[in-house]
């Protein structure tokens, strides 16, 4: 029985490694590194980058209850605003391609995102609602080419702790 288990473990590990290895991403220690695209607009996130990397889920979790249950729709910690700033220039989304802002890190950290079963991954269309709307940013400013940066292994290790 033990031998069978060991065999199973070996088979699974091999399969997992083979699958992981088939990816053509930049690697560090085997896993493809996340590609973090700079937000299209704005200089600074609502909190420090370090804080956001570790705690964005807490902020989103608290904000979602206030929004859904109480109808409080402040923009500061709203997922919609995250998307408005962080949607990729190429896909127009935070989670459509594997290099998009949310997906890139989450697949590196192997944490499933449950937001986008229900939430749109794309910014709001209406310009009237938001002076610095992503749509404006996308179609009028076309910032961008320099927007993609690779995160260092050390930075990611910091987040993982």
């Amino acid at each position: 029985m033990k031998r069978l288990l060991a065999l199973g473990a070996v088979v699974l590990t091999t399969a997992a490694l083979a699958w992981a290895g088939s990816d053509t991403q930049p690697k560090a220690g085997g896993a493809p590194m996340p590609v973090i695209q700079k937000a299209v607009k704005g200089e600074q996130c609502v909190e420090d980058t370090d804080y956001m990397r570790r705690n964005h889920m807490v902020l989103l979790d608290q904000h979602r209850d206030k929004t859904v249950i109480e109808g409080v729709r402040t923009k500061k910690y709203s997922l919609k605003e995250c998307i408005n700033c962080h949607a990729s220039e190429t896909t127009g989304s935070v989670a459509a391609a594997k290099d998009d802002f949310c997906v890139s890190c989450h697949s590196y950290a192997a944490v499933k995102i449950d937001c986008f079963e229900c939430h749109s991954t794309k910014p709001q269309g209406s310009i009237a609602m938001h002076s610095l709307n992503a749509e404006t940013a996308h179609y009028k400013h076309k910032l961008a080419a320099q927007a993609t940066s690779k995160v260092s292994v050390e930075e990611m290790a910091g987040v993982a702790q």
């Binding site: 998307i83 939430h119 749109s120 269309g125």
Partner: peptide
């Protein structure tokens, strides 16, 4: 991903 940004549903 066909949802409206203002109307999450899934």
């Amino acid at each position: 991903d066909t949802q409206k940004p203002d109307v999450p549903r899934g």
